[in-house]
Amino acid sequence: MTDSALAHEHAHPGVKAYVLVAVILFTLTALEVLAFEIVDRGSPAGLAAVLAPVVVAVLLVLSAAKFALVAMFYMHLKQDSTLFSGLFVFPIFVAAILIAALLAMFSYMLSLF
């Protein structure tokens, strides 16, 4: 056990990497809020016009990036067994399909009224 604990420690990224990830997470969160605020206030008008149609996609991408950073570095999936990654990613994959199917079906039903 001690051996594998040591092996773990060596495998885990150092404090520097953790700090870097924290900074990126914070920045991405700021970008999310910024994107929201620009569209919400409609200013600067030019940027808001460009952003408005894609803001949902932008938010999803930013959030996925944050999600991946936490999972890979803080949850150590980058170093740990791929089995753990599988246990996490497979349900996400199933759930994403289910949610997409549900949204599609409910929007269809809505279109009938």
């Binding site: 289910l98 599609a104 269809y108």
Partner: peptide, 18 residues
């Protein structure tokens, strides 16, 4: 098994694509 649940609901009118 996770992709067939709606066959319990054909009579609810989900539309032709579903």
């Amino acid at each position: 098994g996770f992709g067939v649940w709606s066959h319990h609901m054909f009579a609810t009118g989900m539309g032709p694509i579903a």
